[in-house]
C-alpha cells in the first residue's frame, strides 16, 4: 500500500499541498480580517506579501555583506517590520480618507495601491526573477531515516519543515491574540458588528491599526514562506497569490480567521492534488490549469453557499 500509493501521494502531492495551503492560509488571514473589519476586499494584500519577500532578500544581502550568513527567517524579521509599516502607511494615506465614503472607493484605491506597490518594487529591484535560495532542497535526513525505519519514508525538505512549523507557531500566537487579548477581542467585536462597536466606546481606529499589523505580519510570513518554497522571487508573485487567497477567505467565510486558515489549506491541497493521476496515468487537471482550481472552488462556493463553510458574512 505505502509502496504503491502512499509514498508518492504523501511525499509528492500531499505535503507540497499542505505547504502551499499554509502559505495561502497566512495570506488569507489578512484578507479576511480587513474584509471583516474594514468591509472591503483588499487587492493590495498580495503586493505586501511580495514586497516583504523582496525586503527579506535585501536584508539577507545586507547581512551577507556584513559577513553574517543569514537564513531567510532571520531576514524576515526586519522585513516583516517594514511590511507592517508599509501596511500602516498605505492605510493612513490611501485608505483612511475613504472611511466614511462608499466602500467601493476604498476598493478602487486598493486596486490602485496594488499597481503602485508593484511598480515601486519593479523600479527598485527590477522586473526579473531573483534567486532567493540557491541549490536543490534535500529531504531532511533525520526524518527520512526515522520514518523509513517504520516503513513509511517521508521526504520532507528542511524548507517545508520550517514552513509547516512556522505556520503552526503563528496560528497559535494568532489564536492567543484573538481569544485572550483585549485588542484581539476588540478585533472580533468590530468584525462582528462595527456599528455596535462604535456606540460601545471601542476605539475602532486602534482596532484598524491592529488589523493592519496582524494582517501585515501574516502577509510577510506568507511572502517569505512562498519565497522559501519556490526559491525565487518575482514581482508578480503577489498577484498570483491574490486569487487563491480570496478564494480561501470566501471558502472559510468572510470575517472568520480560522475559516480562512481552513480555506487556505483546502485550496492549497486541492491545487496540488489536482495534478495527481487519480484516474489513469495523467494528472486529472492539466498542470497549466492548476491556478484555475482556486477560482473554480471560489465560484462554486459563491453559487452554493456565499457565506462560506464557517458562516461568514455576506455583504
Amino acid at each position: 500500500m505505502w509502496e504503491s500509493f502512499g509514498f508518492e501521494f504523501i511525499n509528492f502531492y500531499f505535503i507540497p499541498g499542505l505547504v502551499l495551503g499554509c502559505i495561502y492560509a497566512l495570506g488569507a488571514i489578512g484578507i479576511t480580517l480587513t474584509f471583516g473589519i474594514l468591509r472591503f476586499a483588499n487587492f493590495s494584500h498580495g503586493e505586501i506579501m511580495m514586497t516583504s519577500s523582496y525586503l527579506t532578500w535585501e536584508f539577507i544581502m545586507i547581512f551577507t555583506s556584513l559577513g553574517i550568513l543569514a537564513h531567510p527567517l532571520i531576514g524576515a524579521i526586519p522585513a516583516s517590520i517594514c511590511a507592517i509599516l508599509l501596511a500602516l502607511f498605505v492605510d493612513r494615506f490611501f485608505y483612511k480618507p475613504f472611511r466614511n465614503a462608499p466602500t467601493i472607493m476604498i476598493v478602487i484605491a486598493s486596486f490602485g495601491m496594488m499597481l503602485i506597490i508593484r511598480s515601486m518594487v519593479q523600479v527598485i529591484w527590477g522586473p526579473n526573477q531573483l534567486t532567493f535560495v540557491k541549490g536543490i532542497a534535500k529531504p531532511n535526513a533525520y526524518i527520512r531515516d526515522l520514518t523509513a525505519s517504520f516503513d513509511f519514508m517521508l521526504l520532507i525538505p528542511n524548507k517545508h519543515f520550517s514552513i509547516l512549523i512556522g505556520t503552526v507557531l503563528i496560528m497559535l500566537l494568532f489564536n492567543y491574540l484573538l481569544s485572550s487579548t483585549k485588542i484581539g477581542k476588540g478585533m472580533r467585536a468590530v468584525s462582528d458588528n462595527p456599528d455596535l462597536a462604535k456606540v460601545s466606546g471601542i476605539d475602532v481606529e486602534n482596532i484598524i491599526k491592529a488589523t493592519w499589523i496582524v494582517g501585515g505580519f501574516c502577509a510577510a510570513a506568507a511572502g517569505v514562506f512562498l519565497a522559501m518554497d519556490t526559491q525565487f522571487i518575482e514581482s508578480t508573485m503577489g498577484f498570483r497569490m491574490l486569487l487563491p487567497m480570496f478564494a480561501a477567505a470566501i471558502l472559510g467565510g468572510i470575517g472568520r480567521p480560522f475559516g480562512a486558515v481552513a480555506g487556505g489549506l483546502i485550496i492549497g491541497l486541492a491545487e496540488e492534488l489536482s495534478a495527481y493521476p487519480w484516474f489513469g496515468d495523467g494528472p486529472v487537471i492539466s498542470p497549466g490549469y492548476k491556478s484555475g482550481v482556486a477560482f473554480s472552488i471560489m465560484v462554486l462556493m459563491l453559487i452554493i453557499k456565499p457565506s462560506g463553510l464557517f458562516k461568514g458574512k455576506v455583504f
Partner: peptide, 9 residues
C-alpha cells in the same frame, strides 16, 4: 453579490 465579490470574480 456585492461589488467586491464581482471584482474578485
Amino acid at each position: 453579490l456585492r461589488a467586491d465579490y464581482l471584482a474578485i470574480a
